[in-house]
Amino acid sequence: MQVTVNKVVDCKGLTCPMPIIRTKKEINDLEPGEVMEIQATDKESIADLKAWSESTGHEYIGSTQDGEIIKHYIRKVSKEEEKQEQKHEDVISLDELLQYIEGEEKVTVLDVREPAEYAFGHIPGAINIPLGELEKRFEELNKEEPIHVICRTGNRSDLAAQKLAGKGFSHVKNVIPGMNDWKGPTEKTE
């Protein structure tokens, strides 16, 4: 799996508690929303970095194993992101989206999470344009088609939906809450 990240942190050869201490230090230098790859050889690091993420409110995206090396992906979550109020009024629930997807018609799903989050599980066929790239990539999308925008919890997709509406897209729906609660089919990037 090739995953695009903003920073790679080397914790190879380190044992508990060093991987989390180094992770804590390095995450301070990330911008909110950015993704860090932590390379560790300590087997404990899977349980520990998950627990650390839960305690600190950051998003543990997933891990891959490459021989001895475990690669962890963590996204820096800001407090603002969690509290943000959703403004785009045209919304759709996960159940409704699932019904559409199971139906006959082609449904366009736009996933605005970071590539690493997308890689670890997304709705089959979903287009991935991270929120931060939407401004320069929105022309890849068809203005006439209904677009269902999704993220992890509904906040980034709300911002993306507002942005697209501002660009003249008239059939944009924000899917709420988001992939965190999605029970339908998903696929991983190989």
């Binding site: 508690p17 201490i21 305690s55 600190t56």
Partner: peptide, 11 residues
């Protein structure tokens, strides 16, 4: 020191 530094790393 393991517990103390781990605790510090969760703020």
């Amino acid at each position: 020191f393991n517990i103390a530094t781990a605790a510090a790393s969760i703020d």
